[in-house]
Amino acid sequence: MKERRVRRADLMLIAVLLAFGVVLALGNVLFSRAGQTAVVRVSGKVVAAYPLSEDREEEIAGAHGGFNRLVIRGGGAWMEDADCPDRLCVGMGVIRRAGQSIVCLPHQVTVEIVGPGRRDTDAVSE
């Protein structure tokens, strides 16, 4: 009985990881040709993409009815506020470079910076 429960949890974990991987890959394909963009996902689904070049403030409807307030200003993005229990996402600070991300686990919200950046390049011509 104990053994079975663990296996089911494993399978669920695998499923979640796979879904996350698929979304990440899709996000890469969909947004790799854009500029620096903050891609917002809720429960693994892309719900919005905002260019970092435009200042804005957005309320994200997270899972379980929670909310996260995302601010984009001066080329950076951060979580200004959230009603999640741990508020770790608010403490993650500002992200601005391709590949950086903010994660709010309780609300299953992720914000990832996608686009050309030095991280993505093999060399820089100057």
Binding site: D10, L18, F20, G21, L24, A25, N28
Partner: peptide, 14 residues
């Protein structure tokens, strides 16, 4: 299973 999942995941995520 876990190893396979990890492999697939790392492949998909690039």
């Amino acid at each position: 299973f876990l190893i396979a999942a990890a492999l697939v995941l790392s492949f998909l995520a690039g």
